[in-house]
């Protein structure tokens, strides 16, 4: 087990750095007073982000007559609003690797992550979270299963065993992970989030997204947990796990609704997920 533990730590270490710019763009995009200069400066500091934006802006979708060669250039051509919306789409995509990973269907994983992100944001809004902070709810939902990416990328053999065990026994992935690895994707995800210096609330929501009633009660954790169950029940994508867990009493009490009640309370979820899928297309390589 000690050896496995070292492997898990190694796997986390091998993940690429999380662009700070992504977090800043998510924040800025919900600020009506965001200045064009501020947005442009953030994008410029991240060469990968810059490259993605330039590739997109030069694609046929924009129909521009000349090649845009810098972010300044893109800014003059497109203006704040278009640039902001493009950056927002790409920021969300940039957080998770897009290439196919052993044992994890990345397309289905993406759809699951985006759906949980969208549902978490909707639940946050239902509880009165401000427009400013609701982007954090989206990010928490988007990243909740990021630990699975670490495991699939860097502990592929063990992660495939986890999938086989979960499918055979009809058990949750995290229980199968405990049996095979002695840790869970939630814990691994939280380790990665800590290494990425993500905000404490976000790290905590990743760590506890299967155990909302463990530790201090948290509105964000409850939202991510409920959103995860809603999305699994509706089968929007898949992160390798289709076991819908019951909502603990504390979570039901927070919303004043059970799982079916929550699903009924967000009739726009499918449409909003569909909109969020645009982000996937925005980030595609070609």
């Amino acid at each position: 087990m000690t050896n496995l533990r070292t492997n898990v730590v190694d796997a986390v270490e091998r993940m690429p750095a999380f662009p700070k710019s992504v977090h800043q763009v998510l924040k800025l995009a919900s600020d009506i007073n965001c200045s064009q200069k501020c947005l442009v400066e953030i994008i410029k500091k991240d060469p990968v982000f810059t490259l993605k934006i330039l590739r997109l802006v030069n694609s046929a979708y924009f129909g521009l007559s000349r090649e845009v060669t810098s972010i300044n250039h893109a800014s003059v051509y497109l203006g704040l609003n278009t640039l902001k919306n493009v950056a927002l789409g790409l920021a969300a995509v940039g957080a998770i690797p897009r290439h196919r990973v052993a044992g994890l269907d990345m397309d289905a994983f993406w759809l699951h992550s985006l759906s949980v992100a969208t549902a978490t944001r909707l639940l946050g809004s239902m509880l009165g979270v401000s427009q400013d902070d609701v982007a954090d709810y989206f990010a928490a939902g988007l990243l909740h299963d990021i630990g699975k990416v670490v495991l699939a990328l860097y502990m592929a053999g063990e992660f495939e065993d986890v999938g086989i065990l979960a499918a055979r026994e009809g058990m949750s992935m995290y229980r199968a992970e405990e049996a095979v690895l002695g840790t869970t994707h939630a814990e691994v995800g939280a380790m990665l989030a800590a290494r990425w210096n993500l905000p404490v609330d976000l790290t905590d929501s990743i760590a506890r997204h299967h155990a909302p009633d463990r530790g201090t009660s948290s509105q964000l954790v409850d939202c991510v947990f409920a959103a995860d169950q809603i999305v699994k029940r509706l089968a929007f994508g898949s992160a390798g796990d289709c076991v819908v867990e019951p909502l603990p009493k504390s979570v039901r009490a927070r919303f004043g609704l059970d799982l079916d009640g929550l699903i009924a309370a967000m009739p726009t979820l499918a449409d909003e997920v569909e909109e969020a899928r645009v982000f996937i297309r925005l980030g595609e390589e070609d």
Binding site: F62, G63, L64, S65, Y77, G79, L80, N81, T82
Partner: peptide
Amino acid sequence: RTLTDRQTVDLGFATVSTLLMNHPAM
């Protein structure tokens, strides 16, 4: 017909040419 920047559409009786302007939309 979706337009692109600096496209010229020939209508026979007239031509219409486009130029991308500066506005918070294309």
